[in-house]
Amino acid sequence: MMNNNTAGQAAKSKSWLRRWLPVLITGLITLAALQLLPDAKSAFIRTTTSYALEMAVILPAVLILMGLLTVFISRDFIARHLGSDSGVRGMAISFLLGTLPTGPLYMAFPLAGTLKAKGARSANIAIFLSAWACIKLPQELVEARFLGPRFMVLRLVFTVILVVIIGLIIEKAGKKG
């Protein structure tokens, strides 16, 4: 008899396999490559350890920051403040709310859909979505660590400007069509 519990377990072990099988395959390819190139072993170990250490130093702290923001800033809070204002203030609010790490992108779409139904400006919806997709405050710290503060700040500034421009273009096109 297949009850719910074993079905759940089967699904769980299946997704477990789907997550870890690529790791296994990459691991085997790596082992094979290092067998064929024994000279490369020390360079491989040096590189992987240095990157693994850098991640170990920064990742837990970044994840804790994201966890705190996710739990302490509720989705209701975002839904309440989003789209309540038009003009530059509304854009700034949409943008800032989008940068808070409150979940993956697929969670932002239903929220944006509700907003659209409520009659929010489409520029603000686009700005909110783009900010949610590509600007997450704790992630900027990781970018600064690996690619340098200059790279991070410049990319952030240009992204902000272009996200706003994209929002305005979409809104204009929407009014015409």
């Binding site: 997550r19 790791v23 691991g27 790596t30 490369a40 491989f44 992987t48 990157y51 693994a52």
Partner: peptide, 15 residues
Amino acid sequence: PMLIIIILLIGLLFV
């Protein structure tokens, strides 16, 4: 899982 894959890929990229 993705973290492990990325680190292995970086190592392979280097060698």
